[in-house]
Amino acid sequence: MPMSERSFLGLSAAGFHRVAYTQWGREDAARTAVCVHGLTRNSRDFDALALDLADRYRVACPDVVGRGKSGRLANPTLYGYPQYCADMAALIARLGVESVDWVGTSMGGLIGMLLAAQSDSPIRRLVINDIGPFIPKAGLQRIADYVGKDPVFEDLAAVESYLRFVLMGFGQLSDEAWRHMAEHSARLRPDGCYGLAYDPAIAEAFKAQPMEDVDLWAVWDGIRCPVLVLRGATSDILPAETAEEMTRRGPKARLVEFAHTGHAPALMTGDQIAAVRDFLLED
């Protein structure tokens, strides 16, 4: 299935910014899926999943502002969920559909939760990948320890080595998958070296808040669409007890766990892709 690179303009209090996204599948597909990445990641994490879904879906995978090929905000204090939700609402309007199925990893899952809890939400089915309405402080601190850093790498091999370390929770991936992430997570600097393809300033808003547990159960209880929760068995971001509680209250989600995986399942392996596809195509 063809993949194309597209963009639209989002609007913040500091002006307009470009939001890039990749699109897979036919324009006239009966269903549309939106796949949104984690805090420091980008749209190309979903290439394998999008390709698999593209026989039945049009799949849009955005680079959240400040990541990948999207623009950066002139005022870094505006990096946060109000802006991300507004941009994703603009993307859905751009796609011109009444409803979408949503797949969100970590940050992308929180954006999906926030949108799905709104009245008259366009989200038909929701897949939340290793995130939930309770996030423990310890897991957030681990992320805070690396987000916002701006390391310099001599080559793509060094980028890949770095990603294998900070993203070890992604699980047991093929060498091809790690190389793919390195290629799409790097930006070539003027000096010929490589940096990471995100704005280090995204950390300012992330770190501006007191480091404490996050409680979004009121949001969770407002969701009405069917929900699938994916969890890495050793995740420090989605505790097992939180995942189980998500199956008992609010939308009473279905839960699937993956062994030998932490935060977060990469959605690049056959079993993980199948779990998402089977849930989305149930009806």
Rank of each mutant, 00 (worst) to 15 (best):
M3C: 13
E5R: 06
E5I: 04
S7P: 03
S7R: 08
L9N: 15
L11R: 14
S12G: 02
F16D: 14
R18E: 08
A20V: 12
A20S: 15
T22Q: 05
T22D: 09
W24L: 04
W24F: 15
G25C: 01
E27P: 01
C35W: 02
H37S: 10
R41A: 15
R41N: 10
R44G: 02
D47Y: 07
A48H: 12
A50H: 07
A50P: 04
D52P: 00
R58A: 02
V59W: 05
C61S: 11
D63P: 05
D63I: 05
G66H: 11
G68C: 12
L73H: 13
L73N: 14
Y79S: 04
P82T: 07
Q83W: 00
Q83C: 07
M88E: 05
A89P: 02
A90T: 09
L91C: 05
L91T: 06
I92W: 00
R94G: 11
L95C: 04
V100K: 02
V100H: 01
V103P: 01
G104R: 01
S106L: 07
L110Q: 12
G112V: 09
G112N: 10
L114H: 05
L115R: 09
A116K: 11
A116T: 08
A116I: 04
S121V: 11
R124I: 00
V127K: 10
V127S: 12
N129V: 11
D130C: 06
P136N: 07
K137G: 00
A138N: 02
L140H: 00
L140R: 14
R142W: 10
A144M: 11
V147T: 14
D150W: 03
V152R: 14
D155A: 00
A157M: 05
A158R: 08
V159S: 07
E160Y: 08
L163K: 03
L167S: 15
G169F: 04
G169M: 09
F170M: 14
Q172P: 03
Q172R: 14
L173M: 15
E176S: 00
A177F: 02
W178R: 09
W178Q: 11
R179A: 14
H180T: 00
A182S: 12
A182E: 09
S185Q: 15
C193H: 06
G195H: 04
L196Q: 03
A197D: 04
A197H: 06
Y198D: 13
Y198T: 12
A203N: 10
A203P: 11
A205I: 06
A205V: 11
K207G: 01
P210T: 07
P210F: 08
E212A: 15
E212L: 14
D215T: 03
L216F: 01
A218L: 01
V219S: 13
V219G: 10
I223A: 06
I223R: 09
V227S: 08
L228R: 13
V229E: 06
L230E: 12
A233D: 15
T234D: 14
S235T: 13
I237A: 11
A240G: 00
A240S: 03
T242F: 02
E244W: 03
E244I: 10
M246R: 02
T247M: 07
R249E: 10
R249Q: 13
G250I: 06
A253R: 04
A253V: 03
L255A: 04
A266L: 10
A266H: 13
G270D: 15
Q272K: 08
I273A: 09
V276T: 09
R277F: 03
D278A: 14
F279E: 08
D283N: 09
D283C: 01
D283M: 00
